[in-house]
Design a protein around this nucleic acid. Structure first.
Lengths: 160, 160
DNA sequence: CGCGATTGAGTTGTGCGCAACTGAATAGTG
DNA sequence: CACTATTCAGTTGCGCACAACTCAATCGCG
C-alpha cells in the first residue's frame, strides 16, 4: 500500500511542486475573478470580505472583524482607513472602552450591499461547480485551515 | 432540486462570505506552515516555488519560470534579485537573445535541495491528509485555476 | 488604591501580486 | 533594407499579509 512513508523524498519534492503551485495558482485565479467582479463596486477582495462581515453584523470593533477574518490590526487598520476614505464605513472610538474602535457601514456602504448581491452568483457560475461541490470545497478548505492553524511549529522544523 | 438558480441572493451572499473566507484562510494557513518550514532554508514560500522549478529544470529564462508559476516579471524580477543576493541563483543575459535572462541555481542553491527534501513530508503530515487526498485536492485546485483563468471578463461584470 | 501586565489600534518595514509603464532587442512586413 | 510591432526584463505604484514595534487605555493583583 502506498502511504506517506513509502514515497521517496525525490517524488515528494515533485508532488509538492504540484500541490504548492495548484493552491497558489487557484488562489490567484480566484482573486482575479473577484477583482474583475468587484471592479464596479470599487472594492478589493479583502475589502469585500470586510464589507461582508459588516453587512452581516451591522457594526463591529476592529478586533471583531479581525477575529472573523483572521486578520490583525496591521492589515486591517490601513484597509479600514481606505474604506473610510471611500465613504463606505465610519470608525469611532468606543465610549465604553477608549482602546476599541467601532466600525460600521455608512448609508453608502449599506447601499453597496444591493449592488454586491449579484457578485457571488457570477463567481459561482465562473467556477463551473454546482452548489454541493461549492459547499464541499468550502468544508474541506475550512477544515484544512483549522488543522494547519493548529499545527505545532516545532513539528515543521528539523529539530521538532 | 436545489441549483444555483433556486438560491436567493441573500443566502448567496452569506455562502460567499463562507467560501471566500475559507479559501482566503486556507491559503494563509498554508503560507503560515510553509513559512515556518522554510525558515531554516532562508526562503519565502514564493522563493521556494521558484527554487523547485529551477531544481527540476536546471536553468530557465525568467519567462520560463513565469510561465510555470503563472507569475510576471513585475513579481519575479525583484524576487530573483533577492534570491541572487542570498547567493542561491545567478542570472546572466542570454547570448543568443539579449532580451532574455537565464536563471540557474548556484552551487549553494543546488545544495539547498538536500535540505529542502524534508519539507514536503512535514507539510503533508501537517495537513492530516493522505496521499490520495492530497492528489485529489491538487487535481481539483488545478482544474479550478484553469477554469477561472479562462473566464471571459465580460461574464463577471454587470454589462456581460 | 497603586502599579505592573495585558489589551486594542495603529505604525513601520519587508516581501508578494498585479497593473501600467519603460527601454532595449528581436521579429516580421512591405 | 527600413520601419513598425512584438517580446522580454525591469521599474513604479498600490494594496495586502505579517512580524515587530509603539502608545494609550484598561485590567488585575497585592
Amino acid at each position: 500500500m502506498e502511504t506517506l512513508d513509502t514515497v521517496p523524498d525525490e517524488d515528494f519534492l515533485r508532488l509538492d511542486h504540484q500541490i504548492c503551485f495548484s493552491l497558489h495558482a487557484a488562489t490567484r485565479a480566484f482573486n482575479g475573478v473577484y477583482r474583475e467582479a468587484l471592479k464596479e463596486l470599487g472594492l478589493t477582495y479583502p475589502q469585500y470580505l470586510v464589507m461582508l462581515v459588516l453587512w452581516e453584523h451591522g457594526e463591529l470593533p476592529v478586533k471583531g472583524i479581525g477575529e472573523r477574518l483572521r486578520l490583525d490590526s496591521g492589515t486591517l487598520s490601513p484597509l479600514l482607513k481606505r474604506l473610510e476614505a471611500a465613504g463606505y464605513v465610519e470608525r469611532r472610538r468606543s465610549p465604553e472602552d477608549e482602546r476599541s474602535v467601532t466600525v460600521r457601514p455608512t448609508a453608502e456602504g449599506a447601499a453597496l450591499k444591493a449592488k454586491a448581491r449579484a457578485v457571488p452568483r457570477r463567481i459561482a457560475t465562473a467556477t463551473g461547480l454546482d452548489l454541493d461541490e461549492i459547499r464541499e470545497l468550502r468544508e474541506r478548505l475550512a477544515a484544512l485551515a483549522v488543522r494547519l492553524d493548529g499545527v505545532d511549529p516545532d513539528d515543521l522544523s528539523s529539530c521538532g
